[in-house]
Computed example of a mutant assay.
Amino acid sequence: MTTTDRVSTEIAALPDGGVAVVLGTRPEIVKLAGIIRHLGPKARIVHTGQHYDEAMSDVFFTELGLPLPDVRFAVGGATRAGQIAAALEALDLLFADATPAAVVVQGDTNATVAGALAGNARSIPVVHVEAGLRSFDRTMPEEHNRIVTDHVSDLLCAATDDNVGNLAREGISGSSVIRTGNTVVEAVLSQLPHPARRERLLAERGLVADRYVLATIHRPENTDDPAALATILAELNRIPCRVVLPLHPRTLRAVEQHGLAHLLDGLAVTGPLGPSEFLGLAAHAALLVSDSGGLQEECTVLKRPLIVVRRSTERPEAMRDFAVLVSPGPLISKTAGKWLDDLPGLHAQLARAESPFGDGRASERIVAEIARRFAC
Rank of each mutant, 00 (worst) to 15 (best):
L23W: 00
V105D: 05
A33Q: 15
A81Q: 15
L94E: 02
M56H: 06
T335F: 12
T335M: 12
T25H: 05
L93S: 09
A254T: 06
E221L: 03
A203K: 10
T223A: 02
G206S: 04
G76T: 13
A203D: 13
P193N: 14
V104S: 08
P141V: 12
D108F: 07
R80Q: 09
P41Y: 04
F374C: 05
V103I: 10
N166A: 10
K338N: 13
P193I: 13
I239N: 01
L264A: 01
A43Y: 00
G294V: 02
L350S: 10
D342C: 03
G65N: 05
L93H: 09
L346M: 10
I217Q: 02
A196G: 13
G107E: 05
L64E: 09
E354I: 05
E354F: 04
R361E: 15
A111H: 10
H284M: 04
T109V: 08
T62K: 08
N182V: 12
R219G: 06
A261V: 08
N163Y: 02
A261G: 13
A209Y: 07
D225L: 09
R361V: 14
N145S: 03
I172F: 03
T2R: 10
G266N: 11
E235G: 12
D341F: 08
A187F: 15
H38K: 07
L66N: 05
L346P: 01
R242S: 11
A55V: 03
E314Q: 10
V185R: 06
V126Q: 06
V71P: 06
V7T: 11
R37L: 08
